[in-house]
């Protein structure tokens, strides 16, 4: 618990600086106006959602190779965070799109990809909630996470490319990225870094929770046997 203070204080200072910089230090992009600043919070959310998917898939592979509950906790906790961040990314994306495109939802490839991730996470939890036996739950959930992880590249890279002509990609992040000047890039990368650290902090907390539940269950079973 002691080194938890380090994480907390570091994150508090770093993220405060990022928030300040996003509003006062970073310039605005021409086409996006004030809403340029959305970029510094929305894009890291989408990045963290993707990162948690990758972490969950890797943890699932590790679990199938070696059935230690720790790997399952990582996969479970990471998917939990992934669900949170996909929801945050799509809701904030919709708010922003409503302002800049005049329509909260228009099946832009990126929106679609995040939505697809959200569905996978939701299905993953639906599957887990339906299985009683913890080992079986972990095993089948890991298999599903891997299958979904294999399907994701198809979705994220191939499908939007085929439909490029159907889905024009109006000045979303690309324009921000391509035209991003030095100051914006500094803030953007700092924010990405901050969110990544934040993700690992949240992951750590959630894993601690899962480990605690595991210990409690073990303790209760032992007490039951002793009686």
């Amino acid at each position: 618990m002691r080194n938890g203070m380090w994480w907390k204080s570091f994150l508090a200072v770093w993220m405060s600086v990022v928030i300040w910089a996003a509003f006062y230090y970073a310039p605005r992009a021409k086409a996006l106006g004030e809403t340029t600043r959305v970029l510094f919070f929305h894009v890291p959310c989408a990045w963290v959602a993707t990162l948690s998917f990758i972490v969950a898939a890797i943890a699932s592979i590790l679990y199938l190779r070696n059935a230690r509950p720790q790997y399952d906790w990582v996969a479970y906790a990471s998917s939990h965070l992934g669900l949170l961040f996909t929801v945050l990314a799509s809701v904030t994306g919709a708010v922003w799109a409503n302002e800049i495109w005049g329509d909260p939802w228009n099946w832009d490839p990126r929106q679609t990809s995040i939505f697809f991730l959200m569905l996978i996470y939701a299905a993953y939890f639906a599957l887990r909630s339906g299985i009683e036996d913890p080992a079986k739950q972990a095993r089948l959930a890991a298999v599903y996470a891997i299958i979904a992880g294999v399907a994701m590249p198809f979705f994220m890279f191939i499908v939007p490319r085929i439909y490029e002509s159907l889905h024009p990609d109006p000045l979303i992040n690309e324009s921000g990225k391509v035209k991003m000047n030095g100051k914006m890039l500094q803030v953007f990368l700092s924010s990405m870094f901050g969110f990544t650290v934040l993700y690992f902090w949240m992951l750590r907390q959630k894993i601690a929770l899962l480990r605690g539940e595991f210990m409690l269950m073990k303790k209760l079973i032992q007490e039951g046997e002793a009686r």
Partner: peptide
């Protein structure tokens, strides 16, 4: 999983999308 098909569509849809 023992959920007897109740979740089938929910789970297949994202992968089959």
């Amino acid at each position: 999983s023992g959920s007897r098909g109740a979740l089938f569509a929910v789970m297949t849809f994202p992968v089959a999308l």
